[in-house]
Each structure stands twice: as C-alpha cells, then as structure tokens.
C-alpha cells in the first residue's frame, strides 16, 4: 500500500470538515476522488500533504505514519502536491520554479531531475527564462505539475488539474498523467471533469457530506447510480457530450 487513510477526521476551527475518511492508493495506481464542491476533496489532499492537521485517524505512506509531519517532511517522504489554483512562484522563472524543487534533495543530479520533470511538457522548453507569472493558465498548470515531478514523488496529489483549461491543454495534462502511470508514480486525482477522471482512473472514491459514500473500480462506478445520486450528473449525457 502506498497511501493509507483510515477514519481521518479534520476540524478547521469549529467546523468539522472531514468525517472519518478511509482511502487507499496502491503503487502506480490512479485513484480519483470525486464529489460536489465543498465536500472536502481539497481538504483531504491538504491533510495528506501536512498543510492541515487531522484531528483524528490514521494517515500513513509506504507503511510509515505521516500525520502531523510538516509539509517539507511529507514531500521528502515522496509525496508531491499540485494545488487547485496552481500556485506557481510567479516572481521566479520557469526554470527556477522547477530547480527549487529539483535541488531540495541536493545539487547532485538536480539537473537530471529537472530535465525529467519538464520532459512531458515540451511547451515549457522555450519559456525557461520567462517569469512564471506571465504564463497562460494552461502553461502554469503544466509548470505546477513539472515542479511537483521535479521532487521525484512516488505519489502525486493533483487537485482539479483541468479546471479552466482549453481542451488542447486538458489533453496535454491527460497525456502527462498517463506518462506518470508508466513511470510508476501513483496519482490521487481530484477532478470535476468526469470524462477525464473516468478515462484515467483505476479506482474511484466519491465523497459526499464529508464522508466516502462509494469506493470501487471504473466498472463499478459506471454500473452504479452513484454519479447521478451524489454528483448530479447523468453519465449518458456526459458520454454524448
């Protein structure tokens, strides 16, 4: 098991955000976390990353407890995060954005790590000296993913990578995620674009009212009524679209 969450509760102030989440990600697997807005999908990723402290429950990665670790230690264990709003370092160049992650484990082989991270995104090659804040939304998303890959993670947490992107950019992101699987990187994907999620995912979790209401394979989710019930989407309409 790569990632294991058992009965994880999260409180933010007086609000009870997550009510006992159970979730597993195996090596090389693409796991999709689906649900309506505000059910705690992003909070789940932030909790795994150490940015939010769980109030209760087990959280482990590759057999080692990660609950309570600061984010840089979680990253050092092999988990990287691409947040919903990308959050590239706007004042740094594209090359610096990638280098800052690639150099964390030391200058040796940092160049090779940076090269490997940018390989899935040829569009960024010609923009290495450009300030990240001046990139388009799609290019910033590619950079955010490349920066995460530069840390050589074994698990990548992707939060809404296709949000607000043109179809051509979504296709590039999809291709990059497929490449991650071939490189053996497990992915925990939060995605509102159901077509993208169903096309990529091996395992699906559906969150509703802050708890997991469904867990199963692509076949299971396609056969169940869960998407209509909890995501308010008619799958046949989605397929026609």
């Amino acid at each position: 098991m790569t990632l294991h969450l058992k009965a994880v509760h999260v409180h933010l102030g007086s609000a009870h955000i997550l009510h006992g989440i159970d979730l597993d990600v195996r090596p090389g697997e693409i796991v999709c976390l689906l649900g309506r807005n505000g059910v705690g999908k992003s909070t789940t990723l932030r909790t795994i990353m150490g940015l939010v402290a769980p109030s209760q429950g087990e959280l482990s990665f590759e057999g080692q407890r990660i609950a309570g670790l600061p984010p840089h230690r979680v990253c050092a264990r092999g988990i990287a995060w691409v947040p919903e709003d990308r959050r590239v370092f706007a004042s740094l160049t594209v090359e610096e954005n990638i280098r800052v992650a690639a150099e964390i484990t030391g200058p040796r082989s940092a160049q090779a790590r940076a090269e490997a991270a940018i390989a899935p995104f040829p569009d960024l090659r010609g923009k290495l000296k450009q300030r990240a804040g001046t990139l388009s939304g799609g290019q910033q998303q590619m950079l955010a993913i490349a920066r995460a890959l530069a840390a050589e993670p074994r698990l990548l947490l992707l939060d809404e990578p296709s949000e607000g992107l043109a179809p051509v950019m979504v296709a590039a992101i999809r291709e990059a995620i497929v490449q991650m699987r071939t490189r053996g990187i497990a992915v925990l994907l939060v995605e509102q674009n159901l077509q993208l999620a169903l096309g990529l995912g091996d395992v699906f979790y559906v969150l509703s009212r802050d708890a997991v209401v469904f867990h199963g394979s692509r076949q299971d989710i396609l056969q169940s009524q869960i998407i209509g019930q909890h995501l308010g989407i008619d799958l046949r309409e989605t397929e026609r679209a």
Partner: peptide
C-alpha cells in the same frame, strides 16, 4: 532560490520540500 520561493508563496514552497523553519 529557496528564500525567494518562500517569500513568493511560503505554503507552496514548504509543500515542495523547503524547510521554512
């Protein structure tokens, strides 16, 4: 580079492995 990353977005820099403390 780490100093500039922290100053740009401290939380994100920590999430990519920078030990801010």
């Amino acid at each position: 580079l780490r100093i500039r990353a922290i100053a740009d977005d401290a939380e994100m820099a920590e999430a990519i492995g920078v030990d801010r403390s």
